[in-house]
């Protein structure tokens, strides 16, 4: 599904990867583990085409991620960033904006599915009218998770999405993503709810090996 082949990546002279390779198969649930600065988030940026490697190739679905394919990849992947910065939108305005993007026109962002997800992630209805910037960290994370699910994509790149949730919600969220057999999930986290889950494979970025 996702394959990094002999990647060299450096930012402003800082070497992040040299000759790095990794393959993630469809349906796998993978946690990327390692200290900050090891390039966990850079792997997501490489898949999404926000940075390009100096050498090596990134493949998505056996297609090399290049300036053409990348636009397609961005329509197949649901990405949640570590810090969710959206700006001056209320939650419902944001949902309207996301569903207004041409690539998402066929999706339904309102109605039953939204209500189910809000119940599941324990968000009350009145949050829809609140400004996103006024939400707590945990609420923002849950809104971003709900948006990612509404996008109906089957590859998830999750950067610390459970960090601000309470214990019960952390567990629920990790299980929510792991349970779906058809989803490919890559999660950056050092939280036991992900690491201890029996279905999750852990890749140690420090040693560059599977655990």
């Amino acid at each position: 599904m996702i394959r990094f082949e002999n990647i060299d990546l450096a930012y402003q002279g800082n070497n992040v990867f040299s000759d790095f390779s990794l393959e993630i198969a469809q349906g796998e649930k993978v946690v990327l583990l390692g200290k900050s600065g090891l390039g966990k988030s850079s792997l997501f940026s490489l898949i999404l085409g926000f940075v390009q490697p100096q050498n090596g190739k990134v493949f998505f679905n056996e297609n090399r991620v290049d300036e053409r394919i990348v636009w397609n990849v961005r329509q197949k992947v649901a990405f949640i960033d570590q810090e969710i910065s959206i700006g001056d939108y209320s939650v419902s305005e944001w949902l309207t904006f996301v569903s207004g993007i041409k690539a998402n026109h066929s999706l339904s962002f309102g109605g039953k599915r939204l209500k189910e997800l809000m119940d599941f992630f324990e968000l009350s209805r009145d949050i829809l009218n609140k400004d996103i910037s006024d939400l707590s960290g945990g609420e923002k994370q849950r809104v971003a998770i709900i948006v990612s699910v509404l996008l109906e994509r089957d590859v998830f790149l999750l950067d610390e999405v459970t960090s601000a949730l309470d214990e019960n919600l952390k567990k629920k969220t990790a299980e929510f993503f792991v349970e779906r057999k058809d989803w490919t999930v890559v999660s950056i986290s050092h939280d036991p709810v992900w690491l201890k889950n029996p279905w999750v494979k852990v890749f140690d970025l420090e040693k560059k090996t599977w655990k």
Binding site: S45, L48, F50, W71, R74, Q75, V77, A78, F79, D81, I84, S85, I86, V98, I101, K102, A103, N104, V147, L151
Partner: peptide, 9 residues
């Protein structure tokens, strides 16, 4: 980048 990742052209 988040906007791009949502599928925006």
């Amino acid at each position: 980048q988040y906007l791009l990742s949502l599928g925006a052209d």
